[in-house]
Amino acid sequence: MSEVKVHKVQYRLARQLKSGAMISTATALGVAKDRVKKIEPKVLAAIEEEFARQDAAFADLKQGEAIGLIRMYGSTNRLLGLAGGAHRLENMGKAALSLCDLLDAQNGVVPADLRPIRVHLDALRILKTDLDERDQAIVLAGLTKVRTHKAQQASD
């Protein structure tokens, strides 16, 4: 059996958090949300840049190049992160997750039918707009259907 060392550690961070001029979690969260809101235009611009990267990756896929899958997966993961930039982007985040699932299931093989991916790319763009919640739910339900159909095809 290999040797196991157990280190009892005291984090400096733990001490710092509990000393000096403290603020309440409610205040901190309020300030953080305000600060995030202020950079929303920057986040939205970054999302547009990722859309452009996704389009480039989609062009790779149309050429049958598997690198497009990796590029699109990376870009969609970044979109997922950016979805934290505004409350109204929550559903765009869900669509990004759905696309990640779809790409992950490809196991590095470019699919013959690219329509499920195209539908997701279009959905991401739609969900970035000020679409009302009912319509957003319809878009998300459509993506679920696409993924279910795709999974069914794979198991047949």
Binding site: R12, L17, A21, A46, G81, L82
Partner: peptide, 25 residues
């Protein structure tokens, strides 16, 4: 209640936009 002002934080994030986002938080 807590105090984060004394702590030095390292944020390793490739995306500049996400850096901004987490930095603001």
């Amino acid at each position: 209640k807590f105090n984060l002002s004394q702590s030095v934080i390292l944020l390793l994030e490739h995306s500049r936009a996400e850096q901004d986002l987490y930095g603001q938080m």
